[in-house]
Design a protein around this nucleic acid. Structure first.
Length: 414
DNA sequence: TCTGGGGTCCTAGGACCC
DNA sequence: TCTGGGGTCCTAGGACCC
């Protein structure tokens, strides 16, 4: 397998940069996008001038105001951001046929094999940097590596408006002195867990070894062992860049500007959220089977309650009916509510129950297995194997699945 | 410091089935 | 008589990302 070259392109303070395009007077000023200073909400993006005051994304707006009262607070323009995200995407597609927008403001490019056309990675990166600046007037940073993980860490470290490349083979040595928090997937909680055990640097993770990490941290530990070597380990970064995927869930939620126990208000909110979810399901041509509500009370305690339907749906009415039942059963009236949410998962491309042929196959497969079990009970474990396993020698575990028969399905990643 | 909204993935217990 | 051993599905909660 060839050594891959992957670019990670990350727009700098994206929402703020777009706002500056429409109002150049904002340039250089502390700007906070996310809402008004006295609203319930958090910072979506902060300009570098605002960051100097300690303002950063995900910070409550009221806190940002305390830190920097003279900042310009903007609610933002989501449609503009989508628009400019699209423009960036267009530029990226000129550099590689395999582009994956990882979010509205970042993307991965599979650049393996583009050398003859675009030159070595750093030269291609420079061209891309220039092209994005020329065609969108927006600043970005570019990370280059042999995995998504390394490319992403590089783009973060080269901000703002920079570029960083780790050459093949240098990954582990490059990562070793970095703080564990730089690893995507290591957040506050994981960070604390490791710090309490004296683990601060990625190199220390490597020294712990894969076996130990997996034993004590499970899948997370196993993934970290790989990531410390610069590999796209774990479920998160798997798969080809640019592979098309369906959403796995669709949801909408809203936080009231003031907590409320008004039944009319709550129920009409649930109706609206259900409609929004239904509309998006239909937009994707998907049907959902598991309907979930989310309640958050004044003290921020949060509950989810779910119900799975027999048949997947994309109808507002069915969603709302389920949502209402869940709500009436679970709201501790009259506790005021801060947030309501409607969530649909178990998404399928068709509404139907399993079709009848599939159902029948499943039944007969079950019967066949039971017959095998009976024979084994009577004559011993080695007496019966499935046709496809016979002649292959040992067969203490037979997991072959003759074509067409419904199997366990579980051919997930990893 | 009074904490958004839209997602993905993981864990864990219990039901249920063979 | 101190209790199987898979497997899947469902539900709830939580970490994490942008």
């Amino acid at each position: 397998m060839p050594i891959r070259t992957i670019f990670h392109v990350d727009m700098d303070a994206f929402f703020v940069s777009v706002e500056e395009l429409f109002d150049p007077s904002l340039k250089g000023k502390p700007v906070v996008v996310g809402g008004r200073a006295n609203e319930r909400g958090v910072v979506s993006a902060a300009s570098y001038a605002a960051r100097k005051y300690g303002v950063h994304s995900a910070m409550p707006l009221r806190r940002a105001y305390q830190l920097c009262p003279k900042a310009v607070f903007l609610p933002g323009h989501p449609s503009r951001y989508r628009d400019y995200s699209g423009k960036v995407h267009e530029v990226l597609k000129k550099f590689s046929p395999r582009v994956e927008m990882a979010s509205i403001d970042e993307a991965y490019l599979e650049m393996t094999g583009t050398e003859r056309l675009l030159g070595p990675p750093l030269a291609a990166g420079q061209l891309l940097h220039d092209a994005i600046a020329a065609e969108t007037k927006l600043p970005c940073s570019i990370g280059i590596g042999t995995s998504r993980l390394v490319a992403k860490i590089c783009s973060a470290m080269s901000k703002p408006h920079g570029m960083l490349c780790v050459t093949p083979g240098a990954e582990a040595a490059f990562l070793a002195p970095l703080d564990i928090r730089k690893i995507p997937g290591v957040g506050k909680v994981t960070e604390k867990g490791f710090r309490e055990r004296g683990i601060h640097k990625i190199g220390q993770l490597s020294e712990l070894g894969e076996a130990y990490l997996e034993k004590t941290w499970g899948k997370l530990g196993l993934a970290l062992a790989g990531k410390a070597q610069g590999l796209d380990a774990g479920a998160w970064f798997q798969g080809e860049i640019g592979a098309v995927e369906y959403p796995k869930s669709i949801s909408h939620e809203t936080t009231f500007s003031q907590d409320t126990a008004d039944v009319k208000r709550l129920e009409s909110t649930l109706a609206k959220l259900s409609q929004m979810v239904g509309r998006r399901l239909r937009g994707h041509g998907l049907y959902g089977r598991t309907i979930q509500i989310k309640l958050r009370y004044s003290d921020f305690s949060t509950f989810t309650r779910a119900h799975s339907l027999d048949e997947a749906t994309q109808l507002d009415t069915v969603i709302l009916e389920t949502v209402q039942k869940l709500f009436r059963r679970n709201w501790k009236q009259p506790r005021p509510i801060r947030l309501l949410g409607v969530h649909v998962a178990g998404l399928e491309e068709s509404p139907g129950q399993l079709d009848l042929i599939e159902e029948d196959r499943k039944r007969r497969w079950g019967q066949a297995l039971r017959a095998v079990d009976t024979l084994r009970d009577r004559f011993g474990e080695g007496s019966v194997g499935l046709a496809s396993a016979i002649g292959h020698g040992r067969q203490e575990r037979v997991h072959e699945n003759p074509a067409g028969l419904p199997g366990h399905g579980g051919d997930k990643d990893e």
